[in-house]
Simulated scan of single mutants.
Amino acid sequence: MTLPKRIASLMLLLSLSLPALAMNLNEAMSELGNAKANGLVGEMPNGYLGVVKSAGEADAITKLINQARANEYQKLAQQNGIQKTDVEAIAGKKAIEKTPAGQYIQLNGKWIKK
């Protein structure tokens, strides 16, 4: 095999394997409990997760779950004829209320253990 063909084959192989390395939403949901328990992510008043301590998969978990939440908030807002920001605020309040003691929530822009 010639060098250009080897390079092309290697690039194809890498492009096929890279998506497998990325975390998907189901994996993020599975890891969320551990990330919260380990103090890596917490709930914010705006209805989204925030990174408390950037370690492990905290950033990926937060990004994927927040994207899913944003989509769901938009659907709920449209179904109920209200603003997305109202849905976010309600969801944030509920998420903070449901957060168990020892996990992080954001209040007044600061992370605190509940």
Rank of each mutant, 00 (worst) to 15 (best):
T2E: 14
L3M: 09
P4F: 13
P4T: 11
K5T: 12
R6E: 13
I7A: 03
I7H: 00
A8Q: 13
S9F: 06
L10R: 08
L13V: 05
L14Y: 07
S17N: 05
L18N: 01
P19A: 10
L21P: 00
M23A: 14
N24K: 12
N24P: 06
L25Y: 07
A28F: 07
S30F: 06
E31Y: 05
E31H: 11
G33M: 04
G33V: 06
A35H: 02
N38T: 06
G39C: 11
V41G: 09
V41C: 11
G42K: 06
M44N: 08
Y48K: 14
L49A: 09
V51S: 04
K53G: 01
K53H: 08
A55W: 00
A55T: 09
E57I: 06
E57C: 01
A58K: 01
A58W: 03
D59E: 15
I61H: 01
I61L: 10
L64V: 02
L64F: 02
Q67L: 14
A68Y: 03
A68N: 07
N71C: 01
N71Q: 11
N71T: 09
E72V: 06
E72A: 15
E72G: 03
Y73N: 08
K75W: 00
L76N: 12
A77D: 09
A77K: 03
A77W: 05
Q78I: 15
N80A: 09
G81D: 09
I82R: 13
V87K: 03
A91G: 06
K93C: 03
K94G: 02
A95Y: 09
E97Q: 15
E97A: 15
P100I: 13
A101V: 13
G102H: 12
G102F: 11
Q103V: 11
Q103S: 10
Q103F: 06
Q103N: 15
I105Y: 03
I105S: 06
Q106L: 08
Q106P: 00
Q106G: 01
G109R: 15
K110H: 11
K114G: 05
